[in-house]
Simulated scan of single mutants.
Amino acid sequence: MIYKIDIKDKYILDAGCGVGFGSLLFAKNKAQKVSGISVSDLEIESANRNKNKYDFDNVDFEVSIFEDVPSCSYDLIFCVESLKHALDFDNAFNTLLSGLKTNGKLIIVDDFFENEMTKTGKAFMSDWNLNFLFALSHFSNIPREFKLEAEDLTHFMPKKSLLKINMQLLFFKLLNKSLFKKLFKGGLLLDKMYAEKVMKYQLIIITKEV
């Protein structure tokens, strides 16, 4: 589905743009205007440095939150592995929906946990400071004027040995506590949930039809 999305001449919001590589790719492929937002000053500083390497006048970066997205402003809103970090999912999600023009699309690509909460899941949430894990049920009550399509992209994820992951986790358990340890341990826990087949990598496209 993602390959069928035309970005030419579109107004695009890259919500959770990181250091701007996705936004710059949209700009390069002739989007009308790209707005990249992140809550991180450091990410936006890096995004602007990356922008300065190119001669694009159709992309801007700003420190902002999902809840400040203006209504009816964008043809496409991309949330690539960013919406799960929202402090208030319902508020952020509804604001992003309201930011779409008619026929606009909200595109979410992220990890989806389709299982009862496990010890591994709780540890992953703690290490990455998440308030929740996505499930398709989060999108079951969208307003009637929106149409939802979903595609499982898990087969694109690299396959890793559960035994190797557990050995690496044991190694990290022996390290002193640090931010470095938490970030990398969180990544291993995510790998473990994929290896155990309780996590899926999903593409969600929500279209505003009226």
Rank of each mutant, 00 (worst) to 15 (best):
D57Q: 12
S64N: 10
A86W: 04
N141M: 05
L174W: 06
F56W: 02
S161G: 10
E149F: 09
I7G: 00
I37E: 01
N129V: 15
L189K: 03
A86V: 04
M199F: 03
K119V: 15
S46R: 13
L87S: 15
T154W: 08
N29E: 05
L25V: 08
F113C: 02
C79P: 00
K53P: 04
L100F: 06
R144Y: 07
K119F: 14
S137P: 05
T207W: 01
F124G: 00
F21C: 12
D55W: 05
N50S: 00
F156H: 12
F113A: 11
C79Y: 00
A150R: 11
V109K: 03
K53C: 00
G20H: 08
L25S: 12
T120W: 05
L153Y: 14
G99A: 08
A15V: 03
F78T: 05
Y201E: 06
I108K: 00
L188I: 08
Y74D: 01
K119H: 14
S137L: 07
L97F: 06
F66Q: 02
M167T: 15
W128A: 02
K164V: 15
D111T: 05
D68V: 06
I44V: 04
L189D: 10
D60S: 15
D41C: 02
D110N: 11
K33W: 04
K28I: 02
L24C: 09
N166H: 13
F112H: 08
L179M: 09
M193Q: 11
K84C: 11
R49A: 08
F26V: 03
G186C: 04
S46Q: 14
D57K: 11
M193R: 00
E145N: 13
S98G: 03
Y194L: 07
F89L: 12
H138M: 03
L106R: 02
N176K: 14
F89K: 00
E151F: 10
S46C: 09
I12K: 05
